[in-house]
Design a protein around this nucleic acid. Structure first.
Length: 470
RNA sequence: GCCCCCAUCGUCUAGUGGCCUAGGACACCACCCUUUCAAGGUGGCGGCACGGGUUCGAAUCCCGUUGGGGGUGCCA
């Protein structure tokens, strides 16, 4: 173990990796890095998830995607909560023997009845002094002392909890297995954790955990509770309603750098007037004490804007490389064998300035690789409604067909069309509309003449001719 | 019910008692550029939840109200 501070990140495997979890991991990672400490990954596995190693692999993959790599010396783990079962039991035993915890044989129904009868809420400490020993069906409860606990929280300051509002919470279930709070604290102690940075929803549990740390004879860690991420209804992001899996954003062609940068601006902002900043600057400047106190809305539109920025910052060849998986995906609308990387490369520059996600790229160049352009009926009707359209189409077809190979260049194609358009008193934008629809099937798309050049004379003339027959 | 947290443009934020006539970004709108669409440029719209204090002075400190969120299990 290194001597620096130890930050732990403790996700539970659920089959996907939550964007909120990614942000918390990133916060811990930045902090561990700048302190020369350690990022400890602990998987909070349960009976349910223990047999799904692919879920853990998914977490590790997703962490690597956002730049938290297990090869990095700062990274330690993964550890598994289930590995510490013996330590959980030993700690519980120690607490019982020291009188810090006691057994209780009341069922939840009985507890509810008593609460109703006394008018109190929750468990009233009925078995505190009954001297019960361990037995099947009996739960071990923590004896919450009188007084109060102060949680020193790096992001929120001191938070005081009156112990009177904490009931004697359960440590061990009736079947002897440990409850989250116990397992969590014991794991943290076992792993020498010094800093716990996690989501705000854990704050109300913190006094209980702090009490356990102390009862077990240890100094509690430095706490930091960061605000949760919410949806437009201001509710905690949930898998049911919201798009929360980082895997899904990755599939859509969100660049990891954009995701990381965006996530870090939720609850925190880099010093200076720039919010698009590289990780190196974030790692250097991030301060937990500067993190906001209020929940942040995860805004997909702003993420997309960040992603567009990052896409435009890419060197062209890198952009081309990153697009390949999307262009060769089985979901692509054209027959795979018709995909021509050279044609795409020729168009890439004009595509790059238009893309906000990589997954949208095939949709803007599809006409190049499709057997026939998919003509949008509405667009066609609209364009051909103009009286000159048919005439322009005819003239352009003839002119293009007569162009020599050496003249088949975007600049010449443009001039040719403009000249014909002027002959009909048309502006440039108007004149190219019928050609665009005939070639691409749509009224909007990447710059037309570049596309025509790439597509080649034969195919262009063929499509124009086919369109005239419509 | 009880406990805890939170409150600046629609959204993310800057702001730590005077530099605030509240700054930036996303979104939106307009204009410019332009072969469509983008990108880029310029401009615009838009906010300190409310009420009391404290202070010469409050977005900033205190109290209350309202509103939101979270927790309160033999879930994690």
């Amino acid at each position: 173990m290194s001597s620096g501070p130890r930050f732990r990140f403790a996700p539970s495997p659920t089959g996907f990796f939550h964007v909120g979890g990614a942000r918390t991991a990133l916060f811990n990672w930045a902090l561990a890095k700048q302190a020369g400490g350690t990022f400890v990954l602990r998987i909070e596995d349960t009976d349910e998830t223990r047999n799904r190693p692919e879920w853990t692999e998914g977490i590790i993959d997703a962490l690597a995607w956002v730049g938290i790599r297990r090869e990095d010396p700062t990274f330690e783990g993964p550890y598994f909560q289930s590995q510490y079962a013996a330590a959980h039991e030993a700690a519980a035993k120690r607490l019982f023997e020291a009188g810090a915890a006691y057994y209780c044989d009341l069922t939840s129904e009985q507890i509810q009845e008593r609460a109703k009868a006394t008018g109190a809420s929750g468990y009233d400490g009925y078995s505190r002094d009954r001297g019960l020993g361990p037995a099947p069906g009996r739960v071990l409860r923590f004896r919450v002392p009188e007084g109060s606990s102060t949680v020193h929280d790096v992001v929120r300051g001191d938070v005081v909890f009156d112990h009177a509002t904490l009931e004697d919470f359960v440590l061990l279930r009736g079947n002897g297995t440990p409850i989250f709070n116990l397992a969590n604290v014991v794991d943290d102690i076992e792993m020498g954790i010094t800093n716990v940075v996690r989501a705000e929803e854990h704050l109300p549990n913190t006094p209980k955990q702090q009490l356990l740390w102390q009862a077990l004879g240890h100094e509690p860690p430095v706490w930091g509770h960061v605000p949760v991420l919410v949806n437009e209804q201001r509710k905690k992001l949930s898998k049911r309603r919201d798009k929360v899996a980082v895997e899904q954003y990755r599939e859509e062609g969100i660049l990891p750098e954009a995701m990381v940068n965006y996530l870090m601006t939720l609850g925190w902002s880099p010093p200076g007037d720039q919010e698009i900043v590289p990780w190196s600057a974030i790692e250097r400047d991030f301060r937990l004490e500067d993190v906001n106190h209020s929940p942040a809305f995860f805004d997909v539109r702003k993420l997309a804007a960040f992603n567009g920025e990052y896409i435009r910052m890419l060197p062209l060849d890198e952009f081309i490389g990153l697009c390949q998986p999307f262009l060769r995906s089985p979901d692509v609308p054209w027959p795979p064998e018709r995909y021509d990387p050279a044609k795409f490369a020729a168009m890439a520059a004009v595509v790059q300035s238009r893309a906000t996600t990589l997954s949208a790229v095939p949709g803007v160049v599809d006409f190049l690789f499709l057997e026939e352009p998919e003509i949008d009926a509405e667009a066609w009707k609209q364009t051909m409604a103009a009286p000159e359209s048919a005439q322009v189409l005819a003239e352009v077809t003839a002119a293009y067909a007569g162009l020599s190979s050496s003249d088949w260049r975007a600049s010449v194609l443009k001039e040719t069309l403009e000249t014909i358009g002027e002959g009909h008193g048309l502006k440039k934008g108007k004149a190219q509309a019928p050609i665009r629809v005939a070639i691409t099937g749509r009224t909007v798309g990447p710059p037309l003449f570049e596309a025509l050049e790439v597509m080649g004379r034969e195919e262009v003339v063929r499509r124009l001719t086919a369109a005239r027959a419509m």
